[in-house]
């Protein structure tokens, strides 16, 4: 199986249409190509990371039709017509998602490589259960491995995002404001 010469523009492969972060995309790639590679190589959305390539670490977690999936285990043919959300689609209108803000303040990200997948898993949890308790948070993140934090600050970050969501959203910082912190 070859991919480089058969990237988005190739006519050899049938078109696969799906939405990524609310944007319609068409790719013409080998149908068994991993969704992870299509996102990274063909759509240049490199926020989604590969950690193990076998569905164990969760670094490549994305949301597909409202389900959390490991994009390394999904052949792209399965996403025809699907709605895909990646980490790039989490921040909206220039504002950090409450989870991103909480991870920033509470030490939820260290090296950052598991962070996109962790954020997607946490976002999935918050959509399903807006007020999760600690066992629910642990269970929801159990498919995402982090080697830096020991998970404690990730749990705290998710819990803080829950609190922030139930409080007023007026204090949210924009990504630009946050970036000025650099």
């Amino acid at each position: 199986m070859s991919t480089n010469e058969s990237a988005t523009s190739s006519k050899r492969w049938p078109a696969i249409r799906f939405n990524v972060n609310s944007e319609a995309r068409i790719v013409k790639v080998p149908p068994m190509k991993r969704l992870l590679d299509v996102l990274r190589e063909d759509l240049h959305l490199t926020g989604t990371k590969e950690g193990c390539g076998e569905g164990e670490c969760g670094s490549c977690s994305i949301r597909m039709n409202g389900e959390l999936v490991n994009s390394c285990l999904v052949p792209v043919l399965q996403v025809e017509g699907a709605d895909i959300q990646t980490v790039e689609g989490l921040a909206l209108d220039g504002a950090l998602h409450p989870l991103q803000e909480a991870f920033l303040c509470h030490g939820g990200a260290q090296c950052g490589i598991c962070t996109p997948g962790m954020l997607m898993a946490a976002a999935q949890l918050l959509e399903r259960s807006p007020n999760p308790d600690m066992p629910q948070i642990r269970e929801a993140l159990a498919g995402n491995l982090c080697r830096c934090t020991g998970f404690i600050r990730i749990f705290e970050s998710v819990a803080a995002a829950v609190d922030a969501q139930s409080a007023s959203p007026a204090t949210k910082l924009t990504t630009e404001q946050m970036h000025h912190a650099r």
Binding site: L45, G47, Q100, G107, A109, G112, T115, M178, A181
Partner: peptide, 16 residues
Amino acid sequence: VPRKEGVDKLLGRACY
């Protein structure tokens, strides 16, 4: 203080 490269990591734009 916020982690220096934290925002890039959280937005998925940190470049590995």
